[in-house]
Design a protein around this nucleic acid. Structure first.
Length: 287
DNA sequence: CATCGCCACGACGATGTTCT
DNA sequence: AGAACATCGTCGTGGCGATG
């Protein structure tokens, strides 16, 4: 889809892009070979940008495209950078108003890596450099800014936020709601949420019980393991809005979670806090 | 509860088009 | 060629909604 894209060129938006397609210019190659015939659609500088685009794509410069593309169109990067994507999710605590990262899950479609505060959190900064494309859920508002602030990590500028792509194709709500909508289930982790992750970390900190950490990592991992499926659905739905929907999109299967929740731990925390959890800000923030 | 960026929406302005 | 108009993209603002 990236090589069909023209809306990354200055002064070309979605409307003009459609006109270019309708004029029989579906790809950059077509534009560069006979775009001169349509000076109204493709100016000289536009064609120069396309030559630059060809070169930047050859060198795999996802960040450059991300900066040129409208935010709503970053999903198009998946066609050429999907195999260099890092699916990332963080868990945090709020100590006296200070947001601290407790764990990070990083998945690339094959390998899952997890990072734990006080153990290996910092090595995330090096590992994320292996990837060109960042994929998150609500990461533009949450995960991204916190990772950059707390770890001083350099994240890829090319960033697909599933929350907004999915919403634009009619799949609204949080990560769990989107998963349910697409028929994905979470088994033993059903019903856990971000706040429960805070409690799991607290349990691990106060008791040193490794099973609490393992349950937290299982939760954290589940979030990133489902992302490739969500991305494939979103990508296919966006493609359907273009004339290029003929291209087949392979939907990955959810990988098995190497981390496993401990039911005793979940029950113990549920019992202590009751069925309705208090907001952490309600009690903890004022000490 | 605090945070934060996206998305609408409307106003504005640059560019392209048409008419004389 | 020059002016008037139309079109389209951008910029700024306010509110929303998902995050732990």
């Amino acid at each position: 889809m990236l090589i069909n894209t023209f809306c990354h060129i200055p002064r070309i938006g979605n409307i003009k892009e459609r006109k270019i397609w309708e004029a029989g210019i579906p790809t950059w190659k077509d534009a560069l070979s006979n775009g001169q015939k349509y000076p109204k659609l493709l100016s000289k500088t536009a064609l120069q940008t396309l030559e630059e685009s060809t070169e930047r794509l050859h060198y795999g410069e996802a960040d450059w495209f991300a900066q040129c593309l409208p935010k709503t169109e970053t999903w198009r990067l998946c066609s050429h950078f999907g195999d260099k994507a890092a699916f990332v999710d963080i868990e945090t605590t709020n100590d006296d108003g200070e947001i601290r990262i407790t764990t990070i899950a990083l998945y690339d479609g094959k390998r899952l890596r997890t990072y734990v505060q006080g153990r290996n959190l910092e090595s995330f900064c090096d590992d994320i450099q292996e990837y060109s494309l960042l994929v998150t859920f609500n990461g533009r508002c949450f995960d991204g800014p916190i990772i950059e602030r707390e770890l001083q990590a350099q994240l890829p500028k090319a960033h697909v936020d599933l929350r907004f792509v999915l919403r634009s194709v009619g799949i609204t709500g949080g990560l769990k709601a989107c998963e349910r909508r697409l028929g994905l289930s979470r088994d033993e982790l059903e019903g856990l949420d971000g706040y429960f992750a805070v409690l799991l970390w607290h349990e691990y900190q106060t008791t040193g019980d490794e099973r609490a950490l393992e349950t937290l990592l299982a939760y954290n991992a589940a979030d990133v393991l489902s992302m490739p499926v969500l991305l494939a659905h979103a990508y296919e739905a966006k493609l359907m809005e273009t004339p290029f929907h003929g291209t087949p999109v392979t939907c990955p299967k959810i990988a098995e979670n190497p981390h496993h929740p401990h039911e005793e731990i979940i029950q113990r925390i549920r019992k202590r806090f009751g069925l309705r959890f208090l907001s952490q800000w309600g009690d903890h923030s004022k000490g």
